[in-house]
């Protein structure tokens, strides 16, 4: 579904050029949920923005569904770190935003209900709890009915209970909708809970240093299993050894 070959992205020009990603190659199969981990500033978000077509590759190729990514695509949705809600729009208008921009019709009420947001349609983001705001952000992406979900730390800065709830929600949605997902995170447990494969990135410039297989994702009570803890320990060790 997603193929990245020799991707290099740099910002700025001249002496101020910053190399964010250096020669990254990876692929994600259709319906696969993968996690990308690495320290802050390792180009994780840059990778997502490039997959979404917001940032053009400096070198290399990005393909989704066999097509070169050139600009944003309708079948790819991005969930931003702080949900990226527009505070001047109601919950309903925020959830509909993507559809409206693309000139599509669709009923988001069903999606809002699915995410436990029924009855809050006319509220503004400023009136919601942080967890609800994240769910509105997810609803906005879900309303587009995309084939690919790109998630930029959707659980960052949440308390641990809310974080776990949103993690469970993402897992449930993935199991229900069979989308292809790329989750960027710096939380090791989260990567193990949600990534069938975990891509480990080095500090800037971001390079793919290791891929950890984690096929148990989605099995019942995975988070409480000994296997899970062992995988977390392993991933932590990989991160230490790769100097990240």
């Amino acid at each position: 579904m997603i193929e990245v070959e020799g991707l290099t992205v740099s910002y700025g020009a001249g002496r101020r050029t910053v190399l964010a990603l250096a020669g990254v190659s990876l692929s994600v199969a259709e319906g696969e949920l993968v996690a990308v981990v690495g320290p802050s500033g390792c180009g994780k978000s840059t990778l997502l923005f490039t997959l979404d077509g917001l940032i053009p590759p400096t070198q290399g190729v990005v393909r989704i569904g066999g097509q070169m990514v050139q600009g944003v695509r309708r079948d790819v949705a991005l969930i931003l770190q702080d949900a990226g809600l527009l505070p001047w729009k109601t919950v309903l208008a925020n959830a509909e935003l993507g559809l409206r921009i693309q000139g599509r019709r669709g009923d988001v009420r069903e999606v809002l209900e699915e995410l436990g947001l029924a009855g809050f349609e006319r509220r503004y983001p400023g009136e919601l709890s942080e967890g609800m705001r994240r769910r509105v952000g997810i609803a906005r992406a879900l309303a587009l009915n995309p084939k690919v979900f790109l998630m930029d730390e959707p659980m960052a800065n949440l308390d641990s209970i809310t974080r776990q709830r949103i993690q469970d929600l993402i897992l449930k949605l993935w199991q229900g909708f069979h989308f292809t997902g790329v989750l960027v995170t710096h939380d090791i447990e989260e990567a193990v809970f949600l990534g069938q494969r975990i891509f480990v990135f080095s500090p800037r410039p971001g390079r793919l240093v290791e891929v950890v297989e984690n096929p148990e994702v989605g099995t019942s009570k995975y988070r409480d299993s000994a296997q899970f803890l062992a995988r977390v320990r392993h991933l932590r060790q990989v991160l230490v050894e790769s100097g990240t």
């Binding site: 600009g71 931003l80 702080d82 809600l85 921009i101 693309q102 587009l144």
Partner: peptide
Amino acid sequence: TYVTAVRSAGASRWQ
């Protein structure tokens, strides 16, 4: 983040 959210949905300059 507001700009990215809207651009990611494919917004035109006018939008």
